[in-house]
Amino acid sequence: MIADELGQKAGEHPVFPDRRLALMLACTHSTVDPAMRAPLMLQVLLGLTASEIGAAYLVPPATMGQRLVRAKARIKELGIRFEEPDAERLARDLPAVLDAIYATFTSDWVCRESRNRAEEAIWLAQCVVAQVPSDPEAKGLLALMLYLSARMDAQSGPDGGYVPLDEQDVSRWDHAAIDTAEALLRAANQCGPSGRFQIEAAIQSVHCARRSSGRTDWVTIGSLYDLLFALLSSPVVRLNRALARSHIDGAAAVLGEVIELGRDPRMVSYQPYWAARSHLAAEAGERETALEIFGVAIGLTTDPAVRAYLMKRRQRLLDG
């Protein structure tokens, strides 16, 4: 319904050939609840129903419906116009669109619907790139998501079990998607200074280079995380930087920093943090701590395949 309404409104401006970008900008207006931006885009652009979106966000259909209606009302009330955005407005508002798209793509705890959502996010990013071909970050985001989704199939082994990145069979990666991502990233880098999505894409590019070199260049990945941390200073980036360094300096060298990171309240129920910390503790030979921390990581996992993988790791440690 909302898609029709907003779509019609958007269609009233024939100068703008494709209204999708204008719609996305309206969905990410500063007064729209950040948590509702991506769901709203999914409904407006893809015509997904409230119950489909609700299922992906673990929210009952009625609740999601109410939230979508409320967000739509905000847009109407403020009379947000679906005008062709000028360069200044794009520069200001595009980051929010890109953030919302990436939020759709990454969700650390919904597993079953995540593949559909990844495809939807890639589709949305393709729309943005088509609309704003000169924006390097839009290309960077699209490249990043293509690298990540290219490895999705290889993430589950023949028995359906979870396979971590460094144990994945590179022949099972989607090489066409990686090639596309490489071309996008090259084009993005030519446009000027790199933003967060380009740096993150570059990190994934280095990971994917294992398909030809047979090894992972952790030193380069570590430096890219340094760059990213200077830009974002997020605890997640710090965690990933520590993990990259552990491949160079050993787990014991980074464990202190990772433990300190645990004081950040955002890490308390963040599954990847506990999974990373348990691996590092195990590698550093801190068996008792590792056993305990593996328990926390297992308890925070939603994906049954990942849970089974972590249980196996923990059992291996128990068996000594």
Binding site: W274, E292, G295, V296
Partner: peptide, 11 residues
């Protein structure tokens, strides 16, 4: 698995 879950809740 259930024990691990309770442990995560506690943590």
């Amino acid at each position: 698995q259930m024990a691990a879950y309770a442990q995560a809740l506690e943590k």
